[in-house]
């Protein structure tokens, strides 16, 4: 029975999704970048680890036949760096987003569902996490734990869950009020059963939207950290590329390709996630014909919409290190 539901849901989801051009474009953009990252060895014209004997001409070489997007300060191919950099940035994005959404959704669901003292405790903690400025804390944590990629992922993950927690909490509160939850209690169901079968499936769409947006925030955060020199020195993410280019005179040499390429990569992914997230969100809007995932008019909480809009804005502002990069 369960498979059947899954199938019908996915099919009708796709039917609505197809009609949403914004989401489709976002999905395509994100898909293209994921494809690039996965097949980096096949796509990249040069191996980033290849031993290069450089002459002075290879440093910041202009784009040309051998190096489509020129070379960097070490004479490495910018296009290949970019393609391999997608791997690093997307890896950080996905894993950090997974961590922060997992924490945020768990905290949000438990706070919203149990209420009372549990909620007070969890939300007080969330508020504290929310007011601590993320970037300085991230800098301190990364500096303390050695800038390894896994540490960066964890730091971004555990600093970025607060927005998700508040969003999921308010959604959980709304779902909890619904009559089918009362009916579940009336047939004798316990808390765990109700969370698993009735609360979670109904907040899942919001969790998905949040994950997509969290990916772009995490990529931004990683770029910011790398840009200011706290990236993993053994990997080359887009932020790292920017950092090297900036620190090693790409500007003064007029080697704009070394700056623009990673910058565009970041903008591309952030834009893709924003479009996809926004499109998905529209589909969850009860006014569209997407009935059975729509959560009813009473769920649309103003605060939630405002917060979501703020999140999107933050995401689409680009890699401005002034914002709080790891906040959700």
């Amino acid at each position: 029975m369960a498979d059947q539901v899954g199938a019908t849901n996915l099919r009708s989801l796709w039917r609505v999704f197809r009609r949403n051009r914004m989401a489709l474009v976002g999905l395509f953009m994100l898909g293209a970048m994921i494809f690039t990252a996965v097949f980096a060895p096949q796509i990249a014209p040069h191996d980033p680890d290849e031993v290069i004997r450089i002459s002075i001409d290879d440093i910041y070489a202009k784009p040309g036949a051998n190096h489509l997007l020129g070379t960097d300060d070490a004479g490495r191919d910018v296009l290949s760096n970019f393609i391999y950099g997608a791997r690093v940035s997307l890896t950080v994005g996905f894993f950090a987003a997974a961590i922060s959404v997992f924490i945020g959704a768990t905290v949000g669901i438990f706070a919203g569902f149990y209420g009372g003292r549990v909620e007070n405790l969890l939300m007080r903690f969330t508020d504290i996490m929310l007011v601590i400025p993320d970037l300085p804390l991230a800098i301190v944590l990364v500096a303390l734990t050695k800038p390894r990629l896994s540490n960066i992922i964890i730091v971004i993950g555990i600093l970025g869950w607060t927005g998700t927690a508040r969003l999921i909490r308010s959604q959980t509160l709304a779902v909890k009020q619904r009559k089918f939850v009362l009916r579940a209690r009336a047939i004798g169901a316990g808390n765990w059963h109700i969370i698993r079968r009735h609360i979670f499936p109904l907040v899942l769409p919001l969790i998905v939207v949040n994950t997509v947006l969290a990916i772009s925030l995490a990529i931004l955060a990683e770029s910011t950290l790398s840009f200011i020199g706290l990236g993993d020195p053994t990997t080359l993410s887009w932020g790292q590329m920017l950092n090297y280019a900036f620190g090693r005179g790409a500007m003064s040499s007029g080697a704009l390709w070394a700056l623009i390429t990673p910058g565009l990569g970041i903008v591309w992914v952030v834009l893709a996630c924003t479009l996809l997230g926004q499109g998905l969100e529209q589909m969850l809007n009860p006014r569209t014909e997407w009935h059975h995932l729509s959560v009813g008019a009473e769920m649309v909480d103003r605060e939630q919409i405002a917060r979501h809009a703020a999140m999107r804005e933050e995401a689409s502002l680009g890699a401005a290190p002034t914002g709080s990069p790891a906040s959700g």
Binding site: F180, H198, H292, L293
Partner: peptide
């Protein structure tokens, strides 16, 4: 209209 979970099949 409100007392059935919209995501569950009638059988479930």
């Amino acid at each position: 209209y409100e007392s059935l979970n919209p995501l569950m099949t009638i059988g479930d």
